[in-house]
Simulated scan of single mutants.
Amino acid sequence: MNLWSPDIYAKAWEFATLAHQEQTYGGKTEGIKINYINHIGSVAMEVMNAIQLSSHHIDSNLAIQCALLHDIIEDTKFTYNDIKNKFGQNVADGVLALTKNEDISSKNLMMIDSLNRIKQQPHEVWMVKMADRICNLYHPPYYWNNKKINSYREEAKTIFNNLNIANETLANRLDNKIKDYESFLS
């Protein structure tokens, strides 16, 4: 059985809530703004569901902390060292691997770099990347056109092809979301 610590979860959830407190993102309807912590909670939920359904050993605390903190370095004022000091090196390394390298100008090369860094981490970090993309495929923002929707779907296929061996539940969910995402094309 893959158990996680409620205290470790609460510590990471509180940190993520404070770090993302003013952030929002565009919903599927014009004029709707969603608090960003909703995305963080959704990613953690996908990871926790996969942990529960897995028969393989998973470091649940690593996976959940990385899920809750996955956008901290990329989207907030907090740094790798902040995460390392509060949550340890393994969590900080996982979050850093999940952080896009903004110095790379090409989106395609940025994705390749990201996947290469993720693949150097334990499978728990791979799980977070798949869960993140699953959540991002719930529905596109209202302002995305068909080209952007299709491009995002193609990126999801690349993620699936590179990371699907990490967890069967998340791989199946991601594969289904990729197929379903086509329905958003008009």
Score class of each variant (00 low, 15 high):
12 A>E: 07
167 N>P: 10
163 L>D: 05
56 H>R: 09
90 N>Q: 11
56 H>Q: 09
133 R>M: 04
173 R>K: 15
90 N>F: 02
54 S>G: 10
160 F>Y: 15
21 Q>E: 11
131 A>I: 09
130 M>I: 14
172 N>Y: 06
70 H>M: 07
35 N>Q: 14
43 V>L: 07
85 N>Q: 08
64 I>F: 02
179 K>M: 06
177 K>W: 04
134 I>L: 09
41 G>L: 09
109 L>K: 13
97 A>D: 12
54 S>I: 07
88 G>A: 09
29 T>Q: 06
12 A>Q: 09
184 F>G: 08
120 Q>D: 13
28 K>D: 10
1 M>K: 07
175 D>W: 09
145 N>E: 12
111 M>C: 05
183 S>C: 14
17 T>R: 15
78 F>H: 13
56 H>W: 00
42 S>A: 03
181 Y>Q: 04
143 Y>W: 14
154 E>F: 03
126 W>N: 06
50 A>V: 02
57 H>L: 08
86 K>D: 09
119 K>W: 08
124 E>R: 03
88 G>C: 11
115 L>I: 15
25 Y>H: 13
141 P>H: 10
30 E>V: 12
21 Q>D: 08
181 Y>V: 04
161 N>V: 00
12 A>H: 08
3 L>M: 11
60 S>T: 02
11 K>S: 07
8 I>Y: 04
55 S>N: 08
93 D>H: 02
168 E>N: 08
99 T>N: 10
40 I>N: 01
162 N>E: 12
59 D>C: 03
11 K>I: 00
1 M>W: 02
116 N>W: 07
56 H>Y: 02
136 N>T: 10
98 L>M: 11
43 V>F: 04
127 M>V: 01
158 T>M: 15
185 L>T: 05
8 I>P: 00
123 H>N: 15
153 R>I: 03
39 H>E: 11
100 K>G: 00
182 E>H: 11
92 A>C: 06
62 L>F: 02
73 I>W: 01
